[in-house]
Design a binder for these strands. Structure first.
Lengths: 369, 369
DNA sequence: CTGTTAGCGCGTTCAC
DNA sequence: GTGAACGCGCTAACAG
């Protein structure tokens, strides 16, 4: 692979001149510029990012660490991140942590070794121990979706407490009193917030809380399936189920199917996180759709400000609200009045996310300010 | 950020010794090793990947370039790629080309500058012009899903000709004679193959081909929606629609809904690429499920062989077969005999992909051979 | 077993 | 306007 030296030799100039032409910094005579450009083209020269990064202390890369990229919620966040990053000439390295703090830690260390310019992460753990190296090495970091205690970084997340209240109130308004919560891992802030909102809504309605109906474990589909099954097999099963995310909903769905329970006739089902493709094929699952794309774009904007040093104050927290999409899985009537704000009616919600732009920004790479 | 020199100074040894301890290559006395490890730990030392890469001519990164990561088909491929890459200590940079040859070219150049160790790509164009820099710089490359003419690289793809035949025969067996094909961009090999298989199946059945029923354009949902609409609004609309991928199916679905056509009573609908989440919520769309996860893992294996030099012969092509998942959208009876191999019966197909392992490999990073 | 040395390819002073 | 020279942090000989 041709180096800057090869180009310099062919163009009959010094490497400094080539560098000036390629990076566009510094004065070069039009004549030399032509020579260099011609030589670079002839050789198919591509600057070595590692050498450049070693010198400039910048890789032009940011890391996005999510629990599971196969989950459309995180995929959508990733598009938001990439679209904003690319406009600033940054590119995104993606990593799946599989909800494992150990894997997360390994990725964090790898990213530091890669000398990424910043990290956006949906942390798996309750504490920040796996993120500590980021702080120690002062790598700009932004948390998305989830927060952790005691880690001083910007956060972009949705309001899960209010969200859970909205969903629970919807079920209560439909007459349900025995509502099960199939929650994710309590180490994550969203799981704790969703449980809190759930309890608050029940308390508001003066519905006694049956602790056997509240289940938490991992965020994996199979686990949700098993836990839902256990609850359904009890003496007094719930009449409604609230799943803490789209994967939990799929697990619950499997469990209900195995038992031949009809939705919503036998059991109502609602969940956090829309499943856009599924909604598109059959607008069925009533869901609280979080603004995933926006979470990605905002998180990246905050990160860019940290990277460029435009913003140096103490951590910011951006809390976004979500939309209730009322569809068929809870048996709500079309057009009925509903409790809660941000309600989007229409049981056949068209599934087009209001969150993600239909036409994506072109993403012409530009230089980071 | 601490450097190898800082560690050497604190440990009272030379940088070479530190390097030996950190990279695990070469002999070091237990005593020195302890010193180094302690110093590294105290300083929170993380080796600089760019400096290392500059020296070793290896970044430890591979690039995966896909048209749209939000499409579950490509997401699943990406998991396959990551799972295999991580086992070899490689990590994955992801890029969306948005079906644009220009964006693809920009990414290719960026990846060469990043000095990725290899590239896996689902190319957007018909020719290899945007990939040419990879060849010129002899960057190991593997094509997934799609192939392009005149580019000497390993290919891992599914058999779209046979696939389209299988889907078309299924529709023919159900009595359909006016079948529309909503195809993707003819610049992609899969679009051409799918059209070829479609035509072959019709010819086999001695069904005259009405060219007005064959439509190609982009791979975007909105475009598929518009083209489906145009065909549905003709004098003699089709009784069945074959969508060339999951996104095309969603576009067709929208178009059918807007016109109040019922599926399958008024129009049958089948497509390439399963939509796992949607199938999970409601196993509705009859689809030809391609082994996406396996495509990702195999492509990565081939790439690793190229990177390590284990395999140097001329390009290989791996062609995988797909499964027909018969569900409700075509009105097939449960248990009826079906034309074509690799048929998986069961209109309520459980949606669990046989392709992707339920438990993912742990992915302990190891050194690339 | 360990230290010295020489670059990997680039950007960046500092002279000219 | 341009070139010479240094060093970013690391690994790989080569001595010792």
């Amino acid at each position: 692979m041709a180096t800057i030296q090869d180009v310099a030799r062919l163009a009959g100039v010094s490497t400094a001149t080539v560098s000036r032409v390629i990076s566009g910094r510094g004065y070069v005579s039009p004549a030399s510029r032509e020579q260099v450009l011609a030589a670079a083209d002839a050789l198919g020269y591509m600057p070595n990012g590692m050498a450049r990064g070693l010198k400039t202390q910048r890789s032009g890369l940011i890391a996005l660490l999510v629990p599971e990229i196969v989950n459309s919620f995180y995929t959508t966040i990733s598009r938001g991140v990439e679209d904003v990053a690319n406009v600033s000439g940054l590119h995104v390295i993606l990593g799946n942590t599989d909800e494992s703090v150990a894997k997360e830690r390994a990725y964090v260390e790898l990213m530091i070794s890669t000398r990424v310019d910043g990290v956006i992460i949906a942390p798996a753990g309750r504490t920040a121990t796996s993120l500590e190296p980021l702080l120690a090495n002062s790598v700009p970091t932004v948390l998305v979706d989830r927060s952790v205690s005691g880690f001083p970084a910007d956060v972009v997340r949705a309001d899960s407490i209010t969200g859970a209240q909205t969903l629970t109130r919807h079920l209560l308004a439909l007459g349900h009193r025995r509502i099960a919560l199939i929650n994710g891992h309590r180490d994550t802030s969203v799981a704790r917030d969703r449980e809190a909102g759930f309890r608050t809504a029940l308390a508001e309605a003066q519905v006694e809380i049956d602790e056997r109906l509240i289940s938490s474990g991992t965020w994996f589909i199979d686990d949700a399936e098993a836990r839902t099954g256990a609850i359904l097999d009890e003496d007094t099963p719930p009449t409604a189920i609230l799943a803490a995310n789209n994967f939990m909903a799929i697990g619950a769905l499997r469990s209900l199917r195995e038992r031949g329970r009809r939705i919503p006739q036998d059991v109502a089902l609602a969940c956090f996180d829309d499943i856009p493709d599924a909604a598109e094929v059959d607008p069925f699952l009533t869901a609280l759709a979080q603004p995933a794309y926006t979470m990605g774009t905002l998180a990246t904007r905050l990160l860019l400000e940290r990277i460029s040093g435009t913003f140096r104050d103490s951590p910011r927290e951006i809390v976004l609200s979500s939309h209730l999409l009322i569809r068929r899985s809870c048996g709500a009537q079309l057009g009925e009045s509903v409790v809660g704000l941000n309600v989007e009616l229409g049981p056949d919600g068209d599934g087009r996310s209001p969150d993600r732009p239909a036409v994506l920004p072109a993403g012409k790479p530009a230089v980071l300010a």
